[in-house]
């Protein structure tokens, strides 16, 4: 849910058509995926949205105020095909790329490490505190206090400690991923039925590590998976925000193009984020369905 709101606030240009789009997406998600009627409604809604957008863009005489869908699509194709090179960091090899793929690769360079490291640490602490009452008691005041601080606020330390390159951006993404995964892992571990632990104990599990490995982690997996999936989306929001401070990537292009009044390019890069999110979320859902086939 929060992902949707975040995405829409990012694409401020589509404000006018937003209510339509939202009610439509709600109704399709609550119906069966393969329902022909809901698909038809979805197509109608999407076309209406595009038509409204196009009409509004044509009514505005200055293109940069509201680029039309056609202009955005054109800009998208140009960015997708314009050749450039992408230098792989550490290795230093320059690879052929297009402007769009090069920018996306730049973003991934901090998105992926931040997501992975932040998630792993968040899950580890969440499981630890969910499992151990003492650790929970000791660290709850700290986590309660630090949790409300928006990840972006840590940009000051990202800048003074690491600098605002990939490292700084990854740091902020990592903080975002950390909290989301921390809470989901914590809730998952806390919610493990007592019966399961008792059964395991009666079947010979007599140390904490075995209990965590064979009972707690599998039982908490659905909740942990939800945390990972949420952070996959949320971290894109954080990536864009972090790049507004100057780290290279898709988010930087959004603000950079807008400063040159090329808002069509800005919106094209907004669309890139949306597409990347949809693809990664879809892939993760597939993995989740397979891994959690046992879930009722």
């Amino acid at each position: 849910m929060s992902l949707e709101t975040g995405a829409t606030s990012g694409t401020g240009t589509s404000e006018a058509a937003r209510p339509d789009e939202e009610s439509d997406s709600v109704s399709t998600s609550s119906l069966a995926d393969l329902d022909g009627t809901s698909f038809a409604y979805g197509a109608v809604g999407s076309l209406a949205f595009l038509a409204l957008w196009q009409a509004a863009a044509m009514a505005v005489d200055r293109t940069y105020l509201l680029p039309s869908p056609v202009e955005v699509a054109t800009a998208f194709v140009v960015e997708l095909t314009a050749p450039t090179t992408f230098t792989v960091p550490f290795v230093g090899v320059a690879m052929p790329a297009t402007r769009l793929t090069a920018n996306l690769a730049q973003s991934l360079l901090h998105y992926l490490p931040g997501l992975v490291v932040g998630s792993v640490l968040g899950i580890a602490l969440g499981v630890g505190m969910g499992w151990s009452g003492r650790l929970d008691d000791a660290l709850t005041p700290v986590t309660r206090f630090l949790r409300p601080i928006p990840p972006l606020a840590w940009i000051v330390f990202a800048i003074v400690w690491i600098g605002i390159g990939h490292g700084g951006a990854a740091f902020i993404v990592g903080i975002g991923a950390f909290w989301i995964n921390f809470y989901n892992a914590y809730a998952g571990v806390e919610g493990v039925e007592t019966h399961l632990k008792e059964v395991a104990a009666s079947l010979g599990v007599d140390d904490d590590l075995t209990m965590i490995r064979k009972v707690i982690l599998p039982a908490a997996t659905p909740s942990i998976a939800t945390g990972i999936r949420t952070s996959i989306g949320q971290c894109w929001m954080i990536v864009v925000a972090a790049e507004l401070f100057g780290a290279p990537g898709v988010g930087f292009q959004i603000i950079n193009a807008a400063q040159n009044l090329a808002t069509d390019v800005s919106v094209a890069y907004m669309a890139v984020i949306s597409l990347v999110f949809l693809v990664s979320d879809g892939l993760f859902r597939r993995v989740e369905r397979r891994v959690l086939a046992w879930r009722a």
Partner: peptide, 17 residues
């Protein structure tokens, strides 16, 4: 608890995974 006493619960307590 120990393996010398097998336990069966009303709520089954099966490992769903």
């Amino acid at each position: 608890p120990g393996t010398d006493r097998g336990m069966v619960f009303q709520e089954y307590g099966l490992f769903p995974w």
